[in-house]
Computed example of a mutant assay.
Amino acid sequence: MQLYHHPYSLDSQKVRMALEEKGIDYTSYHLNPLTGKNMNVAFFRMNPSAKLPVFQNGAHVIYRAFDIIQYIDRLAVHLSGEIVPVNTEVYQWMQKVDSWNPKMFTLTHTPIKYRTFVSKFIRRVLIARMAESPDLASMYHVKLREAYETEDRLKDPDIMKQSEEELSELLDDVEAQLNNGKYLAGDEFSPADSMFIPILARITLLDLDEEYINCRPRLLEYYALVKQRPSYKVVVGKFFSGWKKYRTLFKTSFFLCVRTLFRKY
């Protein structure tokens, strides 16, 4: 089993949390979306959406985090030989968490100068790949158009407001649900938690804890609890806890500056 992912990718974190929780071994391939590595020709041929993560088990390839986590859950049950009844509540919470798209929220809370620099670099990467692989030029052009459309959407304050409101509604629902148990679907950690925890980690990365987490006591208690899990420490803590966050971000910033200086896209 192979996983194409990166620590920066929120959906990648969701899948890796699920894999770590189930104790499933896999071969890891890092593709940094901030440096355009997910646009490399070999990966792009396999996955023209260029989105992370991608999970491959033999000839079976899955592209969507929600579907990958469901597959992992079924695989873990099969390997254990147990017959586990379908938990409707877990599935419903997975759907609820998956319905919120973090992309616009993340971008609108990223300093404009950094966001603009990365966006410009990615567009140059796409143009370079179009020249490198003419047979894929039309698909790369789709991604280039998407990049420009995203920049236009970021100028609309209503989009930012909508994303924030949807997140607040999700967190309020979780706050109420945590009155019924330690985790999203009761007292047992589930795939729903694997999907939700990276959202909290993203909020922390953007230094928005006070606004979204600390004001919700049940959620704050839950977050402290899950931070102690080995899966969190491996997937998130290893890269974004304390000074490690700055090391992780510095490495990417240095790469982008050097590549831009020498026009190596």
Rank of each mutant, 00 (worst) to 15 (best):
K143W: 02
R145T: 12
R145Q: 14
E146I: 12
A147P: 12
A147V: 10
A147I: 09
Y148D: 12
Y148W: 13
E149Q: 14
E149T: 12
E149A: 14
E151H: 10
E151R: 12
E151K: 11
D152Q: 15
R153P: 02
R153I: 02
K155H: 10
D156A: 04
D156S: 04
D156K: 14
P157N: 06
P157S: 02
P157E: 06
K161A: 11
Q162S: 12
S163F: 01
S163Q: 08
E164P: 08
E164L: 02
E164W: 03
E164Q: 14
E165L: 06
E166H: 07
E169H: 10
E169D: 11
L170H: 08
L171D: 05
L171Y: 01
D172H: 09
D173F: 00
V174R: 02
A176Q: 15
Q177V: 03
Q177M: 10
Q177G: 07
Q177K: 14
Q177I: 02
L178R: 07
L178I: 10
L178F: 09
N179W: 12
N179S: 11
N180V: 01
N180S: 13
G181Q: 11
K182G: 04
K182F: 11
K182I: 08
Y183N: 03
Y183F: 15
Y183P: 03
L184A: 07
L184D: 07
L184E: 07
L184Q: 07
A185F: 09
A185Y: 06
A185S: 14
A185E: 06
D187G: 02
D187N: 15
E188M: 07
S190P: 02
S190R: 03
S190H: 03
S190W: 04
P191M: 04
P191G: 03
A192H: 06
A192Y: 04
D193P: 02
S194P: 05
S194D: 10
S194K: 05
